[in-house]
Simulated scan of single mutants.
Amino acid sequence: MPWRVAPSDGKNGHRPDPYHIWMSEVMLQQTTVAAVKDYFRKFVTRWATIDDLAAAQDADVMGAWAGLGYYARARNLLKCARVVSQDFGGVFPDTYEALLKLPGIGPYTAAAVASIAFDRRAVVLDGNVERVMARYYRVLDPLPASKEALRGLADGLTPDQRCGDYAQAVMDLGATICTPRSPACGICPWMADCAARLAGDAASLPRKTPKAAKPIRLGVAYVAQRSDGAVLLERRPDKGLLGGMLGWPGSVWTEAPPVAAPPFAADWQTLGEVRHTFTHFHLRLQVCLAKDVDTRLDLAAHNAEFTPRAAFSPGDLPTVMRKVWDLCQ
C-alpha cells in the first residue's frame, strides 16, 4: 500500500507521514484498498502537502474525487486540511483526543492516525478488526449491537508499544487471513486460542442483524447540448447526496413517479434508464437529451451553465452522472 511504512523503516526513525495516513484512512471509509490506491497516488502527487490541499479550489478537489463515492468525505477532507493548515501550522495534532476534534474525523480515523502515524496507544476498530475479535472471543451477539463489546475486547489486546505496527497487523489479519468467507484458520497466528475455530463456527461470525431492503427511488436527468458541443451542468448544493459535485439538471429523486422538471422547454428525447445503487437506496434515472438548444438561454436561476466541450471532463462527474453521459453517446 503506497501509504504504508514497513516496521523495519519505523525502527530506523522513518515514521509514516500523518498526511498520508489521514488521506488513506478517509479514502478507505466504505471503499476497498484496490479502489483507493490510484486515487491516493493522484491526490498526493497533485497536492503533496496538507498546505497544498488546503489551498486547492473546491471544484478541483471534488473533480479529482469523482468516482470514489461518498462525496461528503471530499468536503470534509478540505475542511480538515484547512483547519490543520490554518490552526496547526500544517502539522497534525498527535493525540487521539485532538484528532477527534478535527472536521470529518471520527473515532476510527482518529485512532488509526494516532496509532499508525504517531505510535500512540489507541483502539483501532474497523470491520476487519471487528471480525477478528468476534471470532477470537466467539462473540455471538450480532452487530451492530455488539460493537462496543468488540471495542472493549480489542482494547484488551492493544499493546502499549509498537501500537501502529499492531494496529496495521490486526487489520491485515482480518483482510488477508480471517476473511469474511472461508477464513484461512490453518495459517492464522492466533489459531491456537481462537474460540470460534475451536467451536467450529468461525466462518459464521460475526453475526449481523438483517438489514431492511433498500427502497427504489426514481428521477429524471436532463442532458442539454448546444450546437457547438457545450453541455449544461449544474453544481449540486454542498449539503446532501453528491453535495458539491457537478451533475445534470434533473427532478427530485422520490419513490413516487417523478414529476417532469426540464430546465427549459426543448425537444427532449427519452433515451432510456440508468441504474445506480447508493448506501440507502437504489436509483433509477430516466435520461432525456436535447441537442442544438438555444444558445441565448439564461440559466443563472437554475445554478446551471453551459460548459464548453473542450473544458468538460466526464471523469469529473460522480459515477451515476457518468452513466447518464455514457448513455447519451
Rank of each mutant, 00 (worst) to 15 (best):
Pro2Leu: 15
Arg4Asp: 04
Asn12Gly: 14
Gly13Tyr: 07
His14Ile: 15
Pro16Thr: 12
Tyr19Phe: 05
Glu25His: 04
Leu28Met: 08
Gln29Glu: 05
Thr32Asn: 13
Ala34Met: 12
Val36Trp: 00
Lys37Phe: 12
Phe40Thr: 03
Phe40Cys: 01
Lys42Met: 13
Phe43Tyr: 06
Phe43Ile: 06
Thr45Ser: 15
Thr49Pro: 01
Asp52Tyr: 01
Leu53His: 00
Ala55Pro: 01
Asp58Cys: 12
Ala59Glu: 15
Asp60Phe: 04
Val61Asn: 05
Met62Ala: 08
Gly63Ala: 14
Gly63Ile: 04
Leu68Arg: 04
Gly69His: 07
Tyr71Ser: 10
Arg73Pro: 05
Arg75Glu: 07
Arg75Thr: 08
Leu77Ile: 06
Leu78Ile: 07
Cys80Lys: 02
Ala81Glu: 04
Ala81Lys: 00
Ala81His: 01
Arg82Gln: 07
Val83Trp: 00
Val91Met: 11
Asp94Pro: 05
Ala98Arg: 07
Leu100Ser: 12
Lys101Asn: 14
Gly104Pro: 02
Gly106Asn: 13
Pro107Asn: 14
Val113Ala: 04
Asp119Pro: 06
Arg120Ile: 02
Arg120Val: 02
Arg121Gly: 04
Val123Ile: 15
Val129Lys: 02
Val129Arg: 02
Val132Met: 04
Met133Ala: 03
Tyr136Leu: 07
Tyr136Ile: 03
Tyr137Asp: 06
Asp141Met: 07
Pro144Trp: 10
Gly152Phe: 09
Asp155Ala: 14
Gly156Thr: 08
Thr158Ala: 13
Gly164Pro: 03
Ala167Ser: 15
Gln168Asp: 13
Met171Pro: 04
Gly174Phe: 00
Ala175Tyr: 02
Ile177Thr: 15
Thr179Ala: 12
Arg181Lys: 15
Trp190Ser: 13
Met191Thr: 15
Met191Gln: 12
Ala196Phe: 02
Asp201His: 12
Asp201Ala: 12
Pro206Leu: 03
Pro210Tyr: 07
Arg217Met: 08
Leu218Ile: 07
Ala221Asn: 01
Asp228His: 05
Ala230Leu: 06
Arg235Lys: 15
Arg236Val: 08
Pro237Gly: 09
Asp238Thr: 15
Asp238Asn: 14
Leu241Trp: 14
Leu242Gln: 08
Leu242Ala: 09
Gly247Leu: 02
Trp248Gly: 00
Trp253His: 15
Glu255Cys: 11
Pro257Glu: 10
Pro258Asp: 01
Val259Ile: 10
Ala260Met: 12
Phe264Trp: 02
Phe264His: 06
Phe264Asp: 03
Phe264Met: 06
Asp267Leu: 11
Trp268Tyr: 03
Gln269Trp: 09
Gln269Ala: 11
Leu271Ala: 11
Val274Phe: 09
Val274Ser: 05
His276Glu: 11
Thr277Trp: 11
Thr277Phe: 07
Phe278Asp: 00
Phe281Lys: 06
Leu283Asp: 09
Cys288Phe: 11
Ala290Arg: 02
Lys291Tyr: 08
Thr295Met: 08
Arg296His: 13
Leu297Glu: 05
Ala300Met: 10
Ala300Gly: 11
Asn303Glu: 13
Ala304Gly: 06
Arg309Leu: 10
Arg309Phe: 09
Phe312Gln: 08
Pro314Thr: 06
Val320Cys: 13
Val320Met: 07
Met321Ser: 15
Lys323Ala: 09
Val324Glu: 00
Trp325Ala: 14
Leu327Met: 15
